[in-house]
């Protein structure tokens, strides 16, 4: 009679690339963020990485890009898995080119998806997480309007989940015109809680199978 195999020693797994969960952090670094806000944001980013690193699957699946916007829109970090994320130390200066920043984030996601497809990599609905303490400044109105239109269209087609968080004196009414989901107002400078929540949400997304709805943990860092 044949000897039964030991499953632990004999079963081999198919080598599939992990599905990816891309997330763009779109961060306002205009001059009004100078001082305590930008320092709190930097600390929040460090906590974000540390927290995500604790989840073995999130480390393989969540891809983060960091884009800042002031008078320029800058890609500080193109998409990397969390273990390769080098948390930046951001500084604040200039105006708030929010419209251009939204376009850049959506363009980056589009390009990333086109890189996934030929490699057979499945991906979750991408996230953009925008944090601002103001409103669009120093940009032609049509740039901002077009950005808002794109957010609306891509949300409707479920191509992106676009979240906006207002800090301190952010113009919440203006933000609500730009993004489809109701913007959240951060309590004080509680970036640490915000990023712990974001990390938990990305971990949930990286495994969940909600029926179209994201079953996110309740935010404990802000108000509607």
């Amino acid at each position: 009679m044949a000897v039964a195999p030991k499953l632990e020693e004999t079963v081999e797994f198919a080598e599939n690339p992990e599905p990816r969960c891309p997330c763009v952090l779109l961060l306002d670094t205009s001059s009004s963020m100078r001082g305590a806000p930008i320092e709190a944001l930097n600390e929040g980013l460090r906590v974000f990485k540390t927290d995500l690193m604790h989840d073995v699957l999130a480390v393989k699946r969540v891809e983060v890009a960091v884009v800042t916007f002031d008078s320029e829109v800058k890609v500080i970090q193109d998409f990397v898995t969390v273990d390769h994320l080098e948390t930046p130390t951001l500084t604040a200066q200039g105006y708030t080119h929010m419209g251009g920043a939204i376009h850049r984030a959506l363009d980056m996601l589009q390009a990333r998806k086109e890189q996934y497809r030929p490699h057979g990599i499945a991906y979750y609905r991408p996230w953009v997480f925008m944090i601002t303490d103001g409103e669009p400044q120093d940009e032609p109105d049509d740039v901002v309007e077009h950005a808002a239109q794109r957010v609306k269209e891509e949300e409707a087609q479920k191509r992106v989940a676009f979240f906006a968080v207002g800090v301190e004196n952010a113009n919440m009414a203006r933000l609500a015109q730009i993004v489809t989901r109701t913007p959240m107002k951060l309590q004080g400078l509680n970036f640490v809680h915000l990023f712990v929540w974001l990390s938990a949400s990305m971990q949930a997304v990286a495994q969940s199978r909600p029926e179209e709805q994201l079953a996110l943990p309740p935010p404990d860092w802000g108000t509607l």
């Binding site: 499953l7 079963v11 081999e12 797994f13 198919a14 599939n16 499945a122």
Partner: peptide, 19 residues
């Protein structure tokens, strides 16, 4: 993702045969 070779969905023989 352990038992099938994605994206084609072919079964991964070294996964199944020990079972």
């Amino acid at each position: 993702r352990l038992a099938l070779q994605m994206p084609d969905g072919h079964p991964h023989a070294p996964f199944f045969f020990p079972f």
